[in-house]
């Protein structure tokens, strides 16, 4: 880990994560505003105004809520996103350049299971709890394809270190020959960040599900954290599938930033185009269609890895 970036880089990375998350939130609400016939500009600034409103709002709590677990869960979403970004190499090195960066990212995305379910549990409201269960049911569907999708770049690069994986994609990005893994990975990112179309856990039909009863700064932390998780997941896709910091003219971190913005923007757009995927429809689809496809993708990758070695 001697290659990790110095700790001073924490500040720009955190600021960058915050700015990109705000921009993605702005894009999302601008699209929403356009669809409703409102001005796009008001949509773009909505996240800022929402932040101000929620910081001003009086906090709420429900009767006999499990406040310890509820507060812990709403506090943990943003740190989770920060930790994922910490493993993403910005050019040649990451904030935390660990030989098992890929496994760490997997472990962190699994922590989202605990966090999202606790958000639903802690509130002591039936709609919140239903949202938590929906999230877990969805997670049972997306998690294994996500894990196998993460394995594909590791097989191709013969390494679990994200900097080495992105350095291996010299000239040919992994997304070109592992498209199935890339799609399954993006699907998983939408899943663990509870963004549409993977957001029945936070659906309006259950009064916001895991977001039910969240107000004031608690709500701000969770809503911002969901966008931060989406951005962090997109950032991790860059060294895994999109060649990391490779690109002309700009320095490595610039390309990582641009690719991250593009991926998270595309995921927001895709979320607006697709219908919400219900866990009861999706569970079997994930297991008997997506999972074998991703395993087949891994087979192709490992055959190529063996043949070229």
């Amino acid at each position: 880990m001697a290659d990790s970036l110095p700790l001073v880089y924490v500040v720009p990375v955190m600021v960058g994560l915050a700015v990109v998350s705000l921009s993605v939130a702005g894009l999302s609400s601008a699209l929403e505003a356009r669809d409703r016939g409102l001005s796009v500009g008001s949509g773009l600034t909505l996240p800022l105004r929402e932040t101000a409103r929620l910081m001003r709002q009086r906090p709420r709590r429900t009767v006999s809520a499990d406040r310890l677990l509820w507060r812990s869960a709403s506090s943990a979403v943003i740190p989770l996103a920060v930790l994922i970004v910490a493993f993403v190499p910005l050019g040649a090195h990451a904030l935390v350049d660990h030989p098992l960066g890929l496994v760490w990212i997997n472990a962190l995305d699994v922590v989202a299971w605990a966090v999202m379910w606790l958000l639903g549990w802690g509130v002591n409201s039936v709609t919140g709890l239903v949202g938590g269960y929906r999230f877990l049911a969805l997670a049972l569907g997306y998690e294994l394809p996500l894990m196998f999708a993460l394995t594909a770049p590791a097989i191709a690069a013969g390494s679990l270190n994200l900097a080495e994986i992105s350095a291996t994609q010299d000239g040919l990005w992994f997304v070109v020959w592992t498209p199935v893994a890339f799609v399954a990975y993006c699907w998983g990112v939408l899943g663990f960040s509870v963004r549409p179309p993977m957001d029945p856990g936070a659906g309006s039909d259950v009064n916001g599900g895991i977001l039910a009863e969240l107000a004031a700064v608690d709500r701000l932390l969770v809503l911002a954290g969901r966008y931060a998780l989406l951005v962090a997941g997109s950032a991790a896709a860059v060294p895994l599938f999109l060649g990391g910091g490779a690109g002309p003219l700009l320095p490595g971190w610039g390309w990582v930033l641009i690719k991250t913005i593009l991926v998270s923007g595309l995921l927001v757009l895709a979320g607006r185009r697709l219908p919400t995927l219900r866990p009861d429809k999706l569970l079997e689809l994930g297991w008997v269609v997506v999972l074998p496809l991703v395993v087949a993708q891994d087979l192709v990758v490992s055959v190529i890895a063996v043949a070229t070695n």
């Binding site: 472990a107 605990a114 998690e143």
Partner: peptide, 10 residues
């Protein structure tokens, strides 16, 4: 950490 957090969530 990965396996146990997942299993405890279930």
């Amino acid at each position: 950490i990965l396996m146990m957090v997942m299993e405890m969530a279930v």
